[in-house]
Amino acid sequence: MRWIAFFLILLNFGVFAWFVGTSTSDKERIRVADKRAEVQVQSIALVNEISPQKLSPVPVAPMSPAKASSTEQLCTLLGPFAEELFGEAIVQRLKSLQVSAVLRDVEMQGQMRYWVFLPPLNSRREAYNRLRELQAQGIDSYVIPKGALADGISFGIFSERSRAESLTGELIEKGIRAQFREEPQTHAERWIVLAPGASDSLAPDFWLQLQQEHPELDRRRNLCAEVSG
Rank of each mutant, 00 (worst) to 15 (best):
R2V: 05
F6Q: 08
F6A: 06
F7C: 01
L8A: 12
I9L: 15
I9D: 07
L10D: 01
L11Y: 04
F13D: 09
G14F: 07
V15Y: 07
F16Y: 03
F16K: 06
A17R: 09
G21S: 00
S23V: 02
T24Q: 15
T24H: 12
S25E: 09
S25Y: 07
S25N: 15
K27A: 10
E28C: 06
E28H: 10
R29D: 03
R29A: 04
R29Y: 04
V32P: 04
K35D: 10
K35R: 14
R36I: 15
R36K: 13
R36V: 14
A37R: 15
Q40W: 12
V41S: 14
A45F: 10
N48G: 11
N48S: 09
S51G: 04
Q53Y: 12
K54S: 12
S56L: 10
P57V: 13
P59H: 01
M63W: 01
A66R: 04
A68Y: 00
S69W: 00
E72Y: 10
Q73I: 01
L74I: 12
L74E: 12
C75T: 04
L77P: 07
L78Q: 01
G79E: 04
G79W: 05
P80W: 06
F81V: 05
F81Y: 13
A89S: 06
I90M: 15
I90R: 06
V91A: 13
R93N: 11
R93Q: 06
K95P: 00
K95A: 14
Q98Y: 09
V99M: 05
S100V: 13
V102R: 02
V102K: 05
R104S: 14
D105K: 10
E107N: 13
E107T: 14
M108G: 05
Q109D: 00
Q109E: 11
G110F: 11
M112R: 13
M112T: 14
R113N: 12
L121G: 08
L121Q: 09
S123C: 11
R125C: 05
N129F: 07
R130Q: 15
L131R: 01
Q135W: 03
Q135I: 01
Q135M: 09
I139S: 13
D140Q: 05
S141N: 00
S141A: 15
S141F: 07
Y142S: 02
V143C: 00
K146I: 08
K146T: 09
K146V: 03
A148Y: 06
L149K: 05
A150E: 15
D151Q: 13
D151T: 02
F155P: 10
I157M: 02
R161C: 03
S162P: 02
A164R: 04
E165L: 11
E165G: 12
E165K: 08
T168W: 02
E170D: 14
E170N: 14
E173W: 08
E173Y: 12
A178V: 07
F180D: 07
F180N: 07
F180G: 03
P184V: 13
P184A: 06
P184Y: 03
P184S: 11
Q185N: 15
T186V: 14
H187W: 05
A188G: 11
W191V: 09
V193W: 01
L194R: 03
P196K: 07
G197A: 03
S199D: 03
S201T: 03
S201Y: 02
L202E: 02
L202F: 00
F206Q: 03
F206V: 02
Q211G: 11
Q211I: 06
Q212C: 01
P215S: 12
L217E: 07
D218P: 00
R219K: 15
R220L: 09
R220A: 08
V227W: 08
